[in-house]
């Protein structure tokens, strides 16, 4: 049960949030021009990183805003949070 700092509301218990998986997978602007393989890649394939992962979270039981979290999936340590559309504060 970690604590996530919502960029809009501040520190909250993890149970207030919904996880949204890997971040920065941009929905293709022109899906019809993708091959089946490329579309499958967007749709299903994930890095599923063990280590520092960029991911999406939603403050579902709070402000309902989506934002990004940089979290180490090997120990659940959160390195940074940032709003949608912002550049990651760390690489």
């Amino acid at each position: 049960m970690f604590i996530i700092t919502c960029p809009f509301c501040g520190e909250r218990d993890q149970s207030e949030f919904a996880a949204g998986g890997e971040a920065h997978i941009v929905r293709p602007k022109q899906p019809t021009e993708l091959s089946d393989d490329e579309w499958a890649d967007f749709l299903f394939m994930r890095k599923n990183i063990k280590g520092v992962q960029f991911e999406r979270w939603n403050h579902a039981h709070g402000c309902r805003k989506w934002f990004n979290v940089i979290r180490d999936t090997s120990n659940d340590k959160i390195h940074a949070v940032y709003k949608m559309g912002e550049k990651p504060p760390i690489k």
């Binding site: 998986g21 299903f44 994930r46 890095k47 599923n48 990183i49 999936t73």
Partner: peptide, 18 residues
């Protein structure tokens, strides 16, 4: 649970989440 870790070593992506 570590399938993706091995897949990443081999340079392929899988439709998995651990």
């Amino acid at each position: 649970g570590h399938s993706s870790v091995i897949a990443n070593m081999a340079g392929i992506r899988l439709p998995l989440e651990s």
